[in-house]
Amino acid sequence: MELNELYREVILDHNRHPRNFGRLDPADALANGHNPLCGDKLTVTLNLQGDVISDLKFDGNGCAISVASASLMTEAVKGRDRSSVSAMFDKVHALLTQADAPSTDLGKLAALSGVREFPARVKCASLCWHTLNAALANADAADAAAVSTE
């Protein structure tokens, strides 16, 4: 296990200069993610056009792996529809946890493959994806609430 496998240049770059950092206001949905074990916190805000994530941002604080993963995620999912995002999460999850997982179609997200050699850090990389899922669920709930009040 080599350090430069974990801290690849792409990871260091996205940690230093996170993309889509901040909050959308107004936003169609917001979710807070928290890893109570290490204290990492992040917030994902997003806007939807139909089924497509038209825009999203994240903020919060965490280690380089969690910040870079969130930054890479926002670039990867912007403009994608839900089913494609869900399929991508499955691939990222496999990449983070399975030794022989393919990194095809993942683009820059493939830089996260080194994380699997550091099991203690897998949760750092997946926090943003769980938070994105929670935001999408919140968007559904908000829709349901809006529908029910009409």
């Binding site: 350090l3 074990l37 290490c38 204290g39 965490g62 280690c63 550091f118 203690a120 850090r121 750092c124």
Partner: peptide, 28 residues
Amino acid sequence: VHPHDLGTILDHEGVAIRAGHHCAMPLM
């Protein structure tokens, strides 16, 4: 450098330290 990254790099150098909130969230 976030403390967790520090913890991983130090471990790579054979140095075991604790990184985190040390079960003292209100103090943090």
